[in-house]
Computed example of a mutant assay.
Amino acid sequence: MSNPKRRLAVFCSGTGSNFMAVHKAIAERRLQAEIVLCISNRSQCGAMEFARRKGIDTLHISEKQFNGQEEFARAMIQALEAYGIETILLAGYMRKIPAEVTVAYRGNILNIHPALLPKFGGEGMYGIHVHTAVLAAGEQQSGASVHFVDEEYDRGEILLQGTVPVMEGDTPETLAARVLECEHRIYPEALEKLLLRFRQ
């Protein structure tokens, strides 16, 4: 008897390239997982469009739609429960997850960060800001980290990291492109590693 597929939700705010990489890996590697929901704080973004093309349900949910953080968190949890979500993957989601959600899904929320944590993490360390900081610090290498999400930015247990060299003459943009390729490689590997934990 085959194992039931773990039900995943992906949270996105942008183009969804990591979402696409994970979706492709699930199909190619026949991982025991299925992305059944895409949640975004933006009603129109590349990730939402990709989800719709693939027949994955989408949900636009933003703090602006609710009277306070508590109501927002409750609506998010209700949506996740309605879809039977077991694990959440953050893929370029540009909002902090409500504490109520991180508590309810403790050990079941992953995020990918474009640096080698614990360096260059925390509030304000996102997107091009990260790569600018890495170059300013004179680092010889950078990379990406997949970590569990808790109530603090980028402080959860690291599940997997990948490294890339910092090249002479790099700009934040060229480094970002190299790190993004690393992200696309390690996020599916991290999901596979997490699924293996659940089977043990």
Rank of each mutant, 00 (worst) to 15 (best):
L116Q: 06
I35L: 06
L59R: 13
F148T: 07
G143C: 07
L175E: 06
G68P: 00
A99M: 06
E151H: 09
V134F: 13
E151L: 03
Q78I: 10
G138M: 13
R53E: 11
G16E: 01
R185A: 08
D57T: 11
Y126E: 09
C182F: 10
V146S: 11
L180D: 09
Y105L: 01
N67G: 13
C38E: 06
R185M: 02
Y187L: 02
L160D: 09
V179K: 03
G124C: 02
K24A: 03
A51K: 04
R95V: 05
F72T: 00
G55E: 06
Q161T: 11
G127K: 05
S2A: 12
L90H: 10
D57E: 15
S62F: 06
I26V: 13
C182G: 05
L191H: 03
V166T: 02
T58D: 00
R29S: 08
T58C: 10
K64L: 01
A91N: 07
L195T: 01
H184Y: 07
A177W: 09
A51V: 04
L191K: 08
A91Y: 01
L194A: 04
E181T: 05
A137Q: 11
F66W: 06
L159Y: 14
L180G: 03
M167A: 14
S2G: 07
V101N: 02
M94W: 11
A177L: 01
M20H: 14
P114L: 09
V134R: 10
A115W: 07
P172A: 05
L89R: 10
Q32Y: 12
D57M: 08
F66H: 10
G138I: 15
V101P: 01
L89F: 10
E192I: 12
L175T: 12
H23C: 02
G92V: 00
I26L: 12
P188R: 03
G138T: 15
Q140Y: 12
R42N: 01
H147A: 07
E173G: 02
N41L: 05
N18Y: 09
E34F: 13
P114G: 04
A104T: 04
L116W: 00
G169S: 06
E181H: 11
F198E: 15
Y105A: 01
T174Y: 08
V10I: 12
Y153Q: 05
R199C: 08
I109D: 11
